[in-house]
Each structure stands twice: as C-alpha cells, then as structure tokens.
Amino acid sequence: MSRPVVALVAIGDAGPDRASLQALTFARAIATALGVGLDAIVVGDSAVEPKPAALAGRGVTTALVVDHPTLTSDHPDGWAAAVAALVHERYEAVVGIGTERGNDLLGRVGARLGLPVAANCLTVEPGDRYRVARQRWAGSLIEDAWLDAPQKILTVAPNTVTVPAADASAAPALEHVSVSLTERDLELRVTSREAPARGSISLGDARVVVGGGRGVGSTDGFGDLEDLATLLGGAVGGSRVVTSAGWRPHADQIGQTGLRIAPEIYIACGISGAIQHIVGCKAAKHILAINTDPDAPIMGVADYAVIGDLHTVVPAISAEVRRRRGG
C-alpha cells in the first residue's frame, strides 16, 4: 500500500487551471490519509514544457511530463493509453476532474485497465477499499458506495472542493517519461475545430438570466422575456419543456441535460422547479420566481417570488425599468 497517489493536471501559461487544482486537492487528501506520496501527471499538449514552480505549495513530489513526438490534446485514446500505463506501473489511485473531458479520459483509462471508475465524487475515505460519496442525477442525489479495485480511479465533482491557498511545500521535481503508443492509440483524434461564436452575451456568463418554462406558452411568448433580458443586459434561457417543444433552441436549456448557469439573478418565469431544472440554476446568487401557482416547487428554492401571470408581470417589470430610466 505504499504506492503514491496521482492527480491529472493541465498547466497553462497561468499555471494549473481551477479544475486541476480541485483534482489535486482531492488527491492530496487521499495521499495524506494513506500516508503516501502525491504525484501529478501533466496532461494536454506534450509539446508545451510546464514550469514545475506552478505546482509549488501543493504537496506534489514529482510532476510527470509525457514525452511523445505526436501525442496532443487531440488524442483521447492516446492520453488514455499513456495514463493507463503510468497508473498500472506506479500508482495506488488516480484522480481527475469530473468535467466532460475528465470523465471521458478516466473512463477510457478504466476500460483499458478493466478497473471500475467512480465518477463525480464529493468525498472519499481511503482504505483497503475506498468509501466514496458521489453525485447521481447531476447532484440532486448522493450515492455512498464502495470502490474496490487494485488501483482506484476517481473523478471529482467540479466546483465541490475548496482549494486551499498554496502552502510552503516545495515545487515538484520534473520527470520526463516516455510511453509507447500504438498506431491504434493515436487513430482517434480531433480532425477539425471551430472557434467559439462571438457576439451576444452567452447564457453561461450572463449576470442576469431570464428563464421561461411551459407557462410562456409559445415561441412568440418569449418576446416579453427577450425584452426584459435585453433591457438588463442579460440572456434568455428555458426549461426542457420549451426546448422539446421547439420554442427555443436546445442551447438555451438550463438543467441536468442542458447548461449550468451561475448569474447574479435568475428570473424563472412559468417554471415549476423540477429537480432536473434546479441543478442547472442553483448556483445563481438569487432566484426570483414568477408563477401563477404559489405552491409550485420552485417556491422552495427561489429567494423571491411574484405570484401572477408572467404575461402581465414581465411586461410590467420592463415598463417600470424604462420608466425609472426616464425613457
């Protein structure tokens, strides 16, 4: 049991990203509980030489840099092969972040090694087998489970771990490791990329989001919500009911199978508050519900409510905003 624990980290010009620090923090807790060392595997484009100083203060003994002439972040199977080989050879446990990419990568590692993967963990009690708490239903439910395997593979639920300030521990030693990858491993690769669209305020970044649900009633019904959102420099989103009905594109869907938003205020109009919707908007600082039903479940998560028909309330709010601006 004296094998070390390893975390997967991506290091950019500004150092490790937030997600990597969360994985590293989680991995460090496992290593500390087991009394073993902590390493990091630097993932991404192997052409970029990371500065080990970026990982100082995180308790990392060795940062592994994979040397390979053609492996890049465009190769999901290539990275899975590299990580699987290193984990198999050296480690007690590997921790990554539970983003789409993180789960994809460690899922592939688990498949290669024939080992279980506990995705989106919140807490862990390491031992012979690990007791983990992990998210189900996108975080609406928690599962306590045993993870029982010769090497443990875990991803951490994003934004659930508090990353402490760096401490006095030294920067890790840098170790270049070579891995042998087959042609097969490198076959799957990103063949083209498109840059993000620029222009309008994205739902993910907006400080004000006006959301519409079944109560909006139609595509045209969103006109009033658009008007208010535009006035406040915000964006419009919606529930699954409105995207399934084709009133809004799926890109506007907030929730378990849509987007997670974190605005200053979320104004939820004609939305009942199903758990699958709430997981997408609970990171909003404030929620204002506009609903005809004072007993709708959303009243249990919203901070403020207006009881009434959104088709009269929303235009009245816009009119009041305009009045105060003197226009």
Partner: peptide
C-alpha cells in the same frame, strides 16, 4: 427556503425593480 413574495401580478413591478 421559502420564497419571499414581493408582490402579486403587475403591481409587483416597482418592488421587483427595487430588488434588481
């Protein structure tokens, strides 16, 4: 939580704008 009702119908508009 239990949402604080800031008003009923269109009459709630001034209170909502105060909140914003």
């Amino acid at each position: 939580t239990q949402a604080t009702v800031v008003g009923l119908g269109a009459d709630a508009a001034p209170a909502v704008v105060d909140l914003l």
